[in-house]
């Protein structure tokens, strides 16, 4: 579904990614892990069109993503969340989710200004859908709350609801468990599994939380200094000495 080939990018002469390749299959939960600065978020930023790589290719369902602007990539069915959260802080959580649905709503500027009945019908349906999504991530009671006033964990869940509002095919989650407590992480894992099992979403997740990675991933790619050092099932990579040295080892030290 998503194929990344020989991807390279450098910032100010520093290679952030070196010839990275991997392929995510449909309905797969795929994890990218690695120590801080390994280039995980950079991969997300390239796939969503924010960065242009110096070499390599990114294809989504056969289409070259590198030729597309970020909003076009979103419209192809790729939605994401952000490592440090990028909620629309001064807007309500409901409006945050409604903006996530932007590409699927049809009311243009003129029809909106005229307030045609069809616009309000669409708006009412979108609001109901947005409320359902908020409920799904456990924010049912926070619909009117300013997003910026929510605790970090709730902002992360809000970003998932906003991403889902676009009805994506591929969901990119950037450290969704960051700042969550173990109970919240369990709920999050069930949510992600449910998205794949019930709705057939493909999920690409960047995560430090090993419990989440080991618990839900079908396959894992391990990055270190922008290079792939291992890949396979969670069980396989956990037993790989290179991974233990680069990642798990460094965490115990």
């Amino acid at each position: 579904m998503l194929s990344v080939e020989d991807l390279s990018i450098s910032f100010g002469g520093l290679a952030a990614l070196g010839a990275l390749s991997f392929e995510v299959a449909e309905r797969e939960i795929f994890a990218l892990i690695g120590p801080n600065g390994a280039g995980k978020s950079t991969v997300f930023n390239i796939v969503t069109g924010l960065y242009r790589p110096s070499a390599g290719r990114v294809r989504f369902r056969g289409e070259d993503l590198l030729a597309l602007a970020p909003h076009r990539i979103a419209r192809r069915g790729i939605a994401r969340t952000f490592q440090n959260t990028e909620v629309f802080r001064q807007l309500t959580t409901l409006d945050n989710v409604l903006i996530g649905r932007h590409a699927l709503l049809r009311a243009g500027f003129l029809r909106g200004a005229l307030g045609l009945p069809a616009v309000w019908r669409e708006e009412a349906a979108a609001r109901a859908g947005a409320r359902a999504l908020l409920a799904r991530v456990g924010l049912a009671d926070a619909a009117g709350v300013q997003a910026g006033s929510l605790p970090l964990g709730a902002q992360k869940r809000l970003e998932i609801a906003r991403a889902l509002a676009a009805e994506p095919k591929l969901l990119l989650l950037d450290e969704p468990a960051g700042g969550l407590n173990p109970t919240e992480t369990q709920t999050l894992m069930e949510l992600i599994r449910g998205l794949r099992d019930a709705e057939g979403l493909t999920v690409l997740v960047v995560e430090h939380d090993m419990e989440l990675v080991m618990g839900i991933s079908d396959r894992v790619v391990v990055l270190n200094y922008g290079r792939k050092i291992s890949s396979g099932s969670p069980r396989e990579i956990a037993a790989d000495p290179a991974v233990i040295e680069a990642y798990l080892g460094s965490e115990e030290a």
């Binding site: 602007a69 970020p70 979103a74 990028e86 903006i99 996530g100 932007h102 590409a103 676009a166």
Partner: peptide, 18 residues
Amino acid sequence: RALLAIRESEIAAQASGV
């Protein structure tokens, strides 16, 4: 909402298809 989204976060607005 699209206008407000741009004010609040350009990258998140783009990622939402704006």
